[in-house]
Amino acid sequence: MLKTQTARFAPGQVVRHSKFGYRGLIFDVDASFSQSPEWYEVMSEMHPSKDRPWYHILVDGEKHTTYVAEESLIACPETEEFDHPLLEHLFKCSDSGDISSRLIVN
């Protein structure tokens, strides 16, 4: 029987990578690792669990996205502006500054 995992973070939430220190904005969540075994071996230095949630993240101040295991993330206060070229494509723009309320649901 498969055990269902509950994600600690949700799309629209700002997080910080515990090892590398960058801020990120979650735009999607996978219940478990969904990349190739080759990607895991090359890109995942710490070899975190594949059975826990993994997150697709916009990296603040950069143009790329990243894919990170839940155990490598910590919650981050949303006190600063967030800068990423895909932000307006994935989230609604709002004057309130509440990023989590800007998610576009199709």
Rank of each mutant, 00 (worst) to 15 (best):
N106G: 15
H47K: 15
D60C: 06
T79M: 10
D51A: 03
L86H: 02
R16P: 00
L2I: 14
C76R: 09
D98N: 13
S94I: 09
E62G: 05
T65F: 02
I104V: 13
E38K: 01
G24D: 12
H56Q: 12
V29C: 07
R16Y: 04
L73C: 00
R16Q: 12
F91S: 05
T79Q: 03
K19F: 11
P11F: 01
F82L: 01
S72W: 09
D30G: 03
L87S: 04
E81G: 03
V29S: 05
F27A: 00
V15D: 08
H64L: 14
Q5M: 08
V29W: 13
V42E: 05
R23Q: 07
D95A: 05
P37Q: 02
H56R: 15
R8M: 12
G21T: 12
S72Y: 08
T6R: 09
C93N: 08
A75T: 02
M43W: 10
L86I: 05
R16F: 08
K19S: 13
F91E: 03
G97E: 07
D51E: 14
Q35I: 01
T65M: 14
H17D: 13
P77K: 09
S101R: 13
E70N: 01
F27K: 11
K92H: 13
A7P: 09
V68D: 07
N106D: 15
P77Y: 02
D30E: 13
I57Q: 01
K63I: 04
C76V: 03
D51M: 06
T66N: 09
A75C: 06
L90R: 11
D28K: 14
G12V: 05
D98T: 05
M1I: 04
H64M: 07
H64A: 13
V14E: 08
